[in-house]
Each structure stands twice: as C-alpha cells, then as structure tokens.
Nucleic acid binder design. Structure first.
Length: 285
DNA sequence: AAACACCCCTGCGGGC
DNA sequence: TGCCCGCAGGGGTGTT
C-alpha cells in the first residue's frame, strides 16, 4: 500500500495525536509479520516510555521514546496505523495494540502481514540502522549529479533504478510510474544513457509528484487510510498507473502496460521518450 | 553488479 | 452462483 506520500500522511496525522503520550501496555495478535514482532524488546524498552517524536525515514515510521529507544514500523503493502478508544473492539488483522496513557490505543492493522515492527535499542544509532538507504527524495541530498554518478555504467531500466531504496528511498510502483510520465521519459530507458539535464528534470518531477500526493492525502487504491481512518485522493490524479488501455491524458494514445522486475509498468509510448528519441533531442539541442 | 525467480500473506475481481 | 486464477501499494533471499 503505502509509498512515501502515504507514510508521510500517516506520520503527520499521528504526530499530534500520540506525541507526549506514554505507552502503558502492548497486546500482540500472536502472528508474525514479515519479521516476528519483538515482544521482549517492546516490553523492555517501550513500556512506560513517553513518546517524544514521530518521524519518517524512507517508508519507515519512527516512534521515538524518552529513553532513546525507538519503534520502527514498516507498513508493507497493507499496513495501517490508527488511534482508537480502548473500548472499540480490535479489528481482524490488528497485530499490535499499544495502550496509551489516555485510554486510547495505537493499532497496527496489516492484512497481508508484509509489514514489520523493529525496536531500536537506546544504544543503537538510528543512522546505522538506516545506513543502507539512499537519500530522501524531498531533501537536498537527492541531486542530478548524484543520480548521474550512481547511474554511470549501469544498464538498469530507469523505473527499476528509481524504485531501488539503495539509490533513492520512498518511491514505489505507483509513484515511479507517475514520476516518469510527468518527466516524459520511458520507464525502460537504461540509466547510463540519461543526461544530466534529464536527471535534473526527473529530480524535479519526483519532488512535485510526491508533494502533490502528500497534499492530496496520499493515494487510496483499495484500502489506504490515514491515522484518522480517512482515505487519500491522489488516485484521482493518477495519469498512467492502473490505466492500461485508457487514453493518455496528454495525447490520447492508449496507455501501455508491461512487466518490469515483476511489477506492472504503465506508460505512454508517445509522451515518454525512448532512448532513440532522447538521443535525437540531445543532438538537436 | 544486476536480472530473475521465488518467498512471505490475504483478499478481490475477472473469466469461465 | 461458485471456483480458480492472477494480481496487488512492500522487501528480502538465493541463483545465474
């Protein structure tokens, strides 16, 4: 489900609701997520700790605690976080409930259980935990120069490259497709062929698409909801994702669909430049 | 390195 | 109506 915009929307929604609260108890479903829920570490480091901050890194949510520990939550494909009054019965697929000091519960619901919860112990540096991740796309470290350097000598298709969290974080299948449509570049293009000004445009379109998606409350394809249980609306602005066979919003040509790395790719063969077109444009300019 | 297959899991919609 | 199949926003591993 959630890519960077959805996680950011949840983060911003959760922050004012749970910051300052104290975690009093944890209740587990007993089922494992992609990783087992670390009950002993939660009991040891999180119970009776005050929540001091709620942050996002990549597609992870970080709930920072007063003792320096942190809960690191990944929502996988179907994860949802919400805060509910204690008296509301837990829902099917609620796998972790954290009882707070105000009779509310922070609940993680995850149908497919591809999400994860990890505990960052107080003596572990968060930077080390996330050491393998690339830069945040909405921060200054993502530059055309960086992407040009990372892409040198690589024949990887552009879309796969953008979805690689070692290269840049937060971009999943929906937004990779949308960003490349906005940038006017074919998703199959080998990255070593891409010139600096084109990378500059990709960086700019990445930021614009992600920012617009955050502003719209994220994309609700089937079940995404924010921390208050409300859906997002960016799916209404999607131009290619999920629109195979429908007319391109720009030129009217049917949107194409193919598989790349086991994920569906959607693009307009007319509006998104192939390698050949890119070369001819570069020569002309 | 990088491409691919396959794994984790549940639910939904389409086709028959 | 029901059943089976493919597919779905994530990421990780192991094999060529």
């Amino acid at each position: 489900m959630p890519e960077l915009p959805e996680v950011e929307v949840i983060c911003r929604g959760l922050r004012p609701i749970i910051t300052g609260r104290v975690i009093r108890a944890a209740a587990l479903s007993g089922k494992r997520l992609r990783l087992p829920i670390p009950q002993a570490a939660i009991d040891g480091f999180a119970i009776n700790q005050q929540i001091t901050a709620v942050r996002r890194r990549a597609k992870y949510l970080i709930i920072a605690l007063a003792n320096g520990a942190g809960l690191i939550i990944h929502l996988g494909m179907t994860g949802k976080l919400g805060v509910f009054p204690r008296e509301i019965p837990p829902a099917r697929h609620d796998h972790l409930r954290l009882r707070l000091d105000n009779n509310m519960e922070l609940r993680l619901n995850d149908t497919r259980r591809f999400g994860s919860i990890q505990v960052l112990a107080p003596d572990i540096d968060e930077l080390d935990f996330f050491a393998d991740l690339g830069p945040e796309p909405l921060e200054d470290k993502l530059t055309a120069a960086y992407l040009l350097q990372r892409a040198a000598k690589s024949q990887r298709p552009l879309k796969n490259f953008l979805m690689d969290s070692h290269v840049v974080v937060g971009i999943g299948n929906i937004y990779a497709n949308e960003i490349l449509f906005a940038a006017g570049i074919a998703p199959q293009l080998p990255v070593s062929q891409i010139t600096r000004p084109v990378w500059q445009n990709i960086v700019q379109q990445t930021r614009e698409v992600l920012e617009r998606a955050i502003a719209a409350g994220g994309s609700t394809i089937s079940d995404f909801t924010n921390a208050s249980g409300k859906p997002g609306y960016f799916q209404l602005q999607l131009k290619v994702y999920g629109r195979a066979g429908q007319p391109c919003p720009t030129c009217g040509l049917a949107i194409q669909k193919a598989s790349q790395g086991g994920r569906a790719t959607f693009w307009c063969a007319n509006c998104q430049m192939s390698h050949r077109q890119l070369v001819s444009v570069t020569i002309a300019s």
